[in-house]
């Protein structure tokens, strides 16, 4: 055991350098940087921050879901495809059934995909990377087939209000969704037995099994959460855009993975942070927004975004290796 004074010094230094906190520093730095450089173009304003939240919410929700899959040691590449399929299913169902039924139907798409992913992975004992790569293809195909590539409009005002277009004063409903899902995710991961078992499975699979934890059940549940979150993200896209199309979510997968990784969740299981995933996704949105406002050309934006990502990940990974 370390003597107390030595322990303290270490503890303080470690507390500030912990990888978990890294994303918050980067976030604050980015915020400060853009506030200073873009002071003349309303970057630091409620309207603009609400823009960022609104644009980022589906990614945030997907990031929270993916955090669960990663916590248990699985990756889920099919989430982007689930977004499109769930949005289309919701839009189609809204033409036939009441709003709550359509919403449940769309969420069931997520649950079903999660179950299929989980069962295939556990039964075939194949890596989640390969299985979800396969199901991603299948789901994308089904989504394209479903409406023969046509987009489906949604003219149901209550749906559009609740799932993206509504606001209370300046506060978009999407901010409420973000906060609600983040709180739910946090409690489930940190305060409930399921979250503890999931992290145990991700941290030491053999150990968890030896202690009698059903690793299969826990991991399948995590994948169901990941794709259900993606289905919800699909609803939030549909509500904001007043319609669904098969291309929704297709560009989001990498952003989501980057957001989760920067947020301090290990890509190999056992370590996860819901708050990190939220801030990580906001960071991605903030960078995007700041670069647009700064008037860079599309190419310059791509370069800047790439450089920021590499720097962030490099520092983050280095911190992890300590």
């Amino acid at each position: 055991m370390l003597p107390p004074e030595k322990l303290n010094k270490h503890a303080i230094a470690n507390a500030f350098l912990r990888r978990e906190y890294f994303v918050y520093y980067v976030f604050i730095l980015t915020l400060l940087f853009f506030t200073v450089t873009l002071h003349d173009v309303s970057f630091f304003s409620v309207t603009n921050f609400m823009n960022v939240i609104r644009q980022t919410t589906p990614v945030t929700i997907m990031a929270i879901g993916l955090t669960f899959a990663l916590a248990g040691g699985h990756i889920d590449l099919s989430i982007g495809a689930v977004v499109a399929l769930a949005a289309l299913v919701a839009a189609l169902l809204l033409q036939m059934v009441p709003v709550p039924v359509a919403v449940i139907g769309a969420l069931m798409v997520g649950v079903a995909v999660g179950l299929i992913n989980g069962l295939l992975i556990e039964w075939l004992k194949v890596s989640s990377l390969l299985i979800t790569l396969g199901t991603m293809g299948v789901i994308t195909g089904v989504a394209r087939q479903l409406t023969n590539l046509e987009s489906v409009p949604i003219i149901e005002p209550s749906f559009n209000f609740v799932f993206g277009s509504g606001s209370f004063g300046p506060v978009s409903v999407l901010l409420l969704w973000t906060l609600g899902i983040a709180a739910l995710g946090y409690l489930l991961l940190r305060k409930c037995r399921f979250g503890r078992h999931l992290l145990a499975v991700g941290g030491n699979e053999k150990g968890a099994r030896a202690m009698g934890i059903s690793t299969i059940k826990v991991r399948i549940m995590a994948l169901v959460l990941a794709s259900s979150a993606a289905a919800l993200a699909g609803l939030l896209y549909a509500g904001r855009l007043h319609g669904a199309r098969y291309t929704l979510g297709e560009a989001d997968l990498l952003t989501v993975i980057a957001a989760v990784a920067i947020g301090g969740t290990s890509l190999f299981g056992g370590r996860a942070s819901i708050l990190g995933a939220v801030i990580g996704s906001w960071l991605m949105g903030l960078i995007n927004n700041g670069l647009i406002l700064s008037g860079f050309s599309t190419n310059e934006q791509m370069i800047a975004r790439g450089v920021i990502l590499v720097v962030a990940v490099a520092i983050g990974v280095k911190e992890q290796q300590k």
Partner: peptide
């Protein structure tokens, strides 16, 4: 008590003691 102890490295002592 397995040879590899079956403990979860990132969990604290209390969490490991009450695992499952």
């Amino acid at each position: 008590v397995h040879q590899d102890l079956a403990v979860i490295p990132d969990f604290d002592i209390a969490a490991n003691l009450f695992l499952n």
